[in-house]
């Protein structure tokens, strides 16, 4: 167990030990996989001493440290004020014990398909800040999730912050999920501005496919439309989003069922965001 105190140290350890080491924060995903014997690491890099735990608002951008727990995000005043849809999402992640120790960074980087935050962060146009020894870069949320359990992070990079532009007063957003198993089966997140017309429409679908993804095809049906026209297009947008979800039949439901649920959630999320 290593306990580095700087990003540079983490990078160095990752570079040195490669596949035989893994970053460990809350451990809510990692320890499960290790207990199951699905993965085996010689070293765990305990990153909880890094200073990545703040939620700050500066110059119209809300920044969350990757080590913030779901509980900290759920109860953060800044997030409740500026990004209530995210606060609500965090309030409903897993259960109270997972929320207590699980971190947003761990959740995003483990990239379990059946997870919530990534989907809404894509809809919110979030930027992931990835750092290594000597440099840092920004990765758009919609490019962050590459595949099931796979992100765009390089082997010696660590996610340190997630930054979201604070929406204007005209901003609306919502996230709805559905599932009856322990993890969510379908999740839909959206964000837009409403000034008489719908603009800057962003829709993301998660849980049904291998990674959460943005659905531009569905956005186009609502973008630039009046509220009434957008409502009329919801069914079609929902069908498009469903097909784009890359759903396959498994224990969470058949492909048809999941695609249908995507449509239902999109409609409900949009209507709830309007009100």
């Amino acid at each position: 167990m290593d306990e580095p105190e700087s990003v540079a140290e983490v990078s160095e350890l990752l570079g040195r030990f490669g596949d035989s080491a893994k970053i460990y924060a809350g451990g809510t995903e990692l320890l499960l996989a290790m207990k199951e014997g699905l993965v085996d690491y010689e070293r765990l890099i305990n990153v909880k001493k890094l200073k990545c735990k703040d939620v700050t608002v500066e110059n119209g951008a809300l920044s969350m440290g990757a080590l913030c727990t779901h509980r900290e995000l759920e109860t953060s005043r800044a997030i409740n004020e500026k990004l209530p849809a995210l606060a609500k999402l965090e309030h409903n992640v897993a259960n109270v014990r997972v929320r207590q120790v699980g971190t947003i960074g761990g959740n995003l980087c483990f990239a379990e398909p059946h997870a919530d935050p990534g989907t809404l962060l894509i809809a919110l146009g979030a930027k992931m800040i990835a750092e290594k020894s000597s440099s840092q870069r920004e990765i758009d949320a919609e490019k962050f999730f590459v595949d099931a359990f796979e992100t765009a992070l390089e082997p010696d990079e660590i996610l340190t912050k997630i930054v979201v532009r604070v929406p204007s007063p005209a901003g609306r957003s919502a996230y709805l999920k559905f599932g009856y198993l322990e993890r969510p089966s379908v999740g839909v997140g959206l964000a837009f501005n409403l000034n008489g017309q719908v603009s800057s429409m962003r829709i993301a679908v998660g849980c049904a496919g291998p990674a959460p993804r943005r659905v531009e095809e569905a956005e186009a049906l609502l973008e630039g439309k009046s509220r009434e026209e957008a409502e009329r297009n919801l069914a079609q947008a929902g069908a498009l989003a469903g097909r784009a979800a890359q759903a396959i039949t498994d224990l969470h439901g058949s492909q048809d069922y999941k695609e249908h649920i995507v449509g239902v959630l999109l409609k409900r999320a949009f209507l709830s965001a309007l009100s």
């Binding site: 699905l38 059946h114 396959i248 224990l251």
Partner: peptide, 13 residues
Amino acid sequence: GKLAALGHGIIKR
């Protein structure tokens, strides 16, 4: 066995 825990969907893909 254990690998099935990853999820039918992921293995199928």
